[in-house]
Amino acid sequence: MKEEIIIAGFGGQGVLSMGKILAYAGVMHNQEVSWYPSYGPEMRGGTANVTVILSERKISSPVIHEFDTAIILNQQSLDKFEEMIKSGGVLLYDPNGITHPPKRKDIIVYTIDATAQAAEMGNVKVFNMIVLGAYLKIKPVVTIDNVIEALRKSLPERAHKLIPDNERAIVRGMELVHRTTRNECGCE
């Protein structure tokens, strides 16, 4: 098993944190892991992305140009990374802020309305965990238990009181993820 993922959006959406938590969970799942962040100098509000590789074998390079999965959180990232998804790969996106939906017909497309759900839950900070839950429903590459343990390791102790909210957000994302229909994306 080898999963090559790009997570991309605006700084402040929890893109890098989502990748870091996924990477930690992979380590706890006894996988080889690469976490390779990239962000503009403006950070919050600028573009940010992170490449995560989870593998049963050694990873030769953290730099990749094609992805098994793209998790996209804004239009600029969709424009930039849609063509870099491997044929047959997965695109997961939050439709909030997407003005031109995906065009590819050789990939499987899912949506998660994480923005609206985070607002409904009364905590916009769980947005990225809703998205992560959706991804884990599509591709259960790590367990929720490992993700929760990764949260404990990556969050400062003063934030541990937020772990139950994050766990609820992950479960909610798993419940709400939606595969687009053939008419929407041309997929199977």
Rank of each mutant, 00 (worst) to 15 (best):
Y135A: 08
E32H: 11
I130R: 01
H178D: 15
T180E: 07
K2W: 05
E120M: 13
E83C: 13
G9W: 07
I112Y: 01
C187S: 05
E175P: 06
G9K: 06
I112V: 06
Y39C: 00
S55D: 15
L176E: 07
V142C: 06
E83S: 14
E56K: 03
C185F: 11
I144P: 05
V15Y: 03
L155A: 02
N96T: 13
R179Q: 07
G97Y: 02
R179T: 01
G133I: 02
I130F: 00
K20I: 14
F81D: 02
I163P: 04
L78S: 09
I144H: 06
A119T: 09
I163N: 07
H65T: 13
M43L: 10
T115E: 03
I170V: 12
V15K: 00
H178Q: 15
A8Y: 07
L54M: 10
K161I: 13
H29K: 14
Y93D: 06
H160V: 02
N183E: 13
I64Q: 01
L73C: 10
L54V: 12
N30V: 04
L162R: 10
R57V: 09
K20R: 14
V124R: 09
S17C: 06
M18T: 06
C185N: 14
Q117W: 03
E188G: 14
I107M: 02
I107A: 08
I130K: 01
I72W: 10
I163A: 01
A150Y: 02
I144K: 04
H100P: 08
